[in-house]
Design a protein around this nucleic acid. Sequence first.
DNA 1: GAACGATCATAAATCGATTTATAACAGTAT
DNA 2: ATACTGTTATAAATCGATTTATGATCGTTC
Lengths: 339, 339
Amino acid sequence: MARRKGLTIEDVARAAGVSIAAVSLALNDKGTLSQETRARVKRVAAELDYQADALARGLRRSPMGTIGLVLRPLDAIGSYTLNGVDFFSRLLAAAAVAAMDRGIGMMLVPNLLRSPVPAFAYSLDGYVVAEPEVDDPVVRRLEDRDIPYVSLGRNVARPDSPYWVSSDDEGSMAAVLDHFASAGARDIVLVGGTDSNGWNQDCEAAYRAWTAGAGLPPRVLRAAEGAGIRGGRAVAARLLRDGVPDAVLCATGRQAVGVLEELREAGVSVPGRTLLATASDSEHARTASPAISAVDMHPERLAEGAVDMLHGLIHGTPVAERVRLPTSFFVRESSSRAG
Amino acid sequence: MARRKGLTIEDVARAAGVSIAAVSLALNDKGTLSQETRARVKRVAAELDYQADALARGLRRSPMGTIGLVLRPLDAIGSYTLNGVDFFSRLLAAAAVAAMDRGIGMMLVPNLLRSPVPAFAYSLDGYVVAEPEVDDPVVRRLEDRDIPYVSLGRNVARPDSPYWVSSDDEGSMAAVLDHFASAGARDIVLVGGTDSNGWNQDCEAAYRAWTAGAGLPPRVLRAAEGAGIRGGRAVAARLLRDGVPDAVLCATGRQAVGVLEELREAGVSVPGRTLLATASDSEHARTASPAISAVDMHPERLAEGAVDMLHGLIHGTPVAERVRLPTSFFVRESSSRAG
DNA sequence: GAACGATCATAAATCGATTTATAACAGTAT
DNA sequence: ATACTGTTATAAATCGATTTATGATCGTTC
């Protein structure tokens, strides 16, 4: 690596005719310098366009002005190529933007347990951990290193921690299920994921509560997150054997697409015989034919909420706790009896 | 900030019964240590799960394993809230993922000239600069600091620099214009942006070349990128006065939506009287009614190409130069005469 | 004029690594 | 015993900042 030019504190000190200590104290408004010296140093520094080296500065444990983002579900899948998976790419972009708007940087960091970890990982000011799992080792690692973090999605790794921002999964599920019910569906299947995160847990709990309340029998099937469309097809194949339901609510858009394909190939009409929807909107869902009804969790708002909370935690200012943000349910052709 | 626990090189040295120098040399496979010592130190370090502090290390000018991303068009607009603007959020997410897949971090960095710049900005290993402008001061700043960078979109700030990755704008324009022509359009308007970047330049040049080749008169209007839908409406208002064209090709999806709205309100049928398309696909374009035909520039591929090129530049390995990547044109209702 | 307080600036230690120059040692030749 | 090689480990300088302890200067006061 070529060495960078980099103006150092020494250059400023020389130009201002003071010691490097004076420069540091002046620029950070500390110590007991005279107003005059302080002003002069600041002026000189500004003229030279001096900027303190972030690394040397961080070495003394000043905040780095940068946070990390860990996407646990993608760590689990082992692939970060997000083709057609809207939620995480929207979340990622939104988090970067939210961080930037607050004057801090944001880095996507892969599985903190895989080695080698990216060099920076443990020098960041804090983390947003998306959908941690029960006993999540990444959460443990962050706690070991005393790195502040907030969870995006309920923090099932630390049920007592109040520092999380989540979509209102109960509301989402109720919206979809009410919609199904009002179209006359009685046998409604939930297709969930297998990761032990808050989203899966809360969606299933909400589903069970709703079915119990409606006096309908719950039927839950699961497909691994990583299986994608294939997972949806496998689940649908089982449904074809066990009994075709009136409606299917899939956790992910890709599962929904798989279910759609498998059912249609077997001659089951969607939405004619079976209604279909997904709890997380995606390009897949929107461009499927028929387009699949979906819940938009508004990852942009979630990202902003999480970044705000983390920012507060890092700076020791009071923050909102256990935040649940509303979602939107978009009815599309796959669940419209009229269509 | 509470001080972090952090195992230091000293802890490892003590545990292995050697000096800190020996530890450093062993772990970096440098110097003249015996195989035995080297192995022992490595074993101890692994046992303790030691990881060298990225900052202390960077202080000595080792690569940081992190690159930056600057989105110049958004710097220009002054807002990073990317509502409905697909291209940059997809680019952002894809770049983060591409970087991560190569074991490096990626940070979104705002305008390097605005102060204060994020602390890290000048410590990063390199930059991807999206759509630099003519005489772009950010490019100059990076060069001043000897920070390697590649341009995403032709580097009009440094016409001789071969280090850029761009969409094939000539191909995109030809695809759309041929499509318009085959539907019988003769009076085809181009609506471009006002930023002086490679995309605007190349799109307009391709348009002019194509119209010249086809023996048709060029008609170019412009709307500022920041004006969004409103800018599109303003342009369309002018078209209504000056003469309604057979087809309109807008640079951005938002401009296209604005044109669509204004024309329809004036009673001009789209696609009946006037065909419409945009050179950059977006959610806006897909969900408009009628859906607007659009070019997908595949920001994911562009991001990967740029990250690869930058990675090569940083490590001094040979890289491809002046890369043009193909695009896809999706015909939708807004330009389908049959529909 | 000596002693004392205020006020202001600086020297020097420190953060945790990398890297160079040097030292310690064993083995061989003289 | 001395000198000379290699081989291997370490001491110490360095990166660019922050921060504490110290010191210098000046004006008051007795």
